[in-house]
């Protein structure tokens, strides 16, 4: 196994374990802040997974600049070494959405804390959980 493969496996493993850690936190933790943290970790794992899929070893930016064309001659050869810009655009969007969700979640936690004076999810049970 060469270094590249190890690197790829490491990235996939890291992102999937981040998702699992996040999911674990969301399901088992009773503290509202920790649950929000779990959601955030899950988001990050997902984003990392997206980036990993677009990964190209020694890749360049997806711009057909004169410098790149000089090095690789044809468009086909140049496009082989370019990283996928779509996943990066998706991740940028997903980061913003994740930020929004985290902000709203924290605002709700604050509201819950003021109302119930606790951040323990077990003690907040006015509605059926």
């Amino acid at each position: 196994m060469d270094n590249l493969q190890i690197l790829k496996i490491a990235f996939y493993g890291a992102s999937i374990s981040l998702i699992i850690v996040g999911l674990y936190a969301v399901i088992t933790k009773r503290n509202l802040i920790k649950i929000v943290l779990g959601l955030s970790i899950m988001d990050n794992g997902l984003n990392l997974l997206f980036i990993t899929i677009g990964f190209v070893n020694n890749g360049t930016a997806p711009i057909f600049s004169p410098l790149v064309m000089e090095k690789y001659k044809t468009v086909e050869a140049a496009s082989q070494v370019m990283v996928d810009p779509v996943v990066q655009a998706l991740v940028l969007t997903a980061i913003v959405i994740g930020f929004g969700v985290t902000a709203v979640a924290l605002a709700l936690v604050l509201r819950l804390y003021r109302h119930h004076n606790t951040t323990n999810i077990d003690e907040i049970r006015n509605l059926k959980w």
Binding site: A105, V109, L112
Partner: peptide, 8 residues
């Protein structure tokens, strides 16, 4: 807030 957090 409780309902919204659950929903979220």
């Amino acid at each position: 807030a409780e309902a919204a957090f659950k929903y979220l």
